[in-house]
């Protein structure tokens, strides 16, 4: 339980810091880079190294490659939909989530497993 709480606090703090950096940067497309900052990864990998050791973190990082490819597909699709059809950001980003899951698990299943 204490490990989950530690993950929650460290993850929340790291994500907030990267998001705040993105807030103060201009232009918007540059600030957007921070929407794909390795915030969750830094918090998780750091805690994994401490709790489970380096080999565990190595496997996580390998799988993260599939997650990053999925994020590329997800963010590109959401960007295109919002620019082309002017759908609301919340609706677009939530409804595009299955794409992230499809690409992430697809790449993992066919390439990394």
């Amino acid at each position: 339980m204490s490990q989950i709480l530690a993950r929650f606090l460290v993850g929340g703090a790291v994500v907030s810091v990267f998001a705040a950096v993105g807030d103060v940067l201009k232009p918007k497309s540059f600030a957007g880079l921070f929407g794909a900052a390795p915030s969750v990864a830094l918090a998780t990998l750091g805690l994994t190294i401490v709790a489970e050791g380096v080999p565990y973190a190595t496997v996580e990082a390998r799988s993260m490659i599939a997650g990053a490819l999925a994020l590329f597909a997800y963010a590109s699709f959401a960007s295109w939909i919002m620019m082309r059809y002017h759908f609301k950001a919340l609706l677009t980003t939530i409804c595009s989530m299955p794409l992230w899951f499809g690409v992430a698990f697809g790449v993992w299943h066919f390439w990394l497993r």
Partner: peptide, 22 residues
């Protein structure tokens, strides 16, 4: 909506950096 789209395009570029991180 266009501003959110531009931000998302930035995130797509950042995700290639994230791949390099991993």
């Amino acid at each position: 909506t266009e501003a959110a789209s531009i931000d998302a395009a930035g995130a797509a570029m950042g995700s290639i950096g994230l791949l390099a991180f991993a």
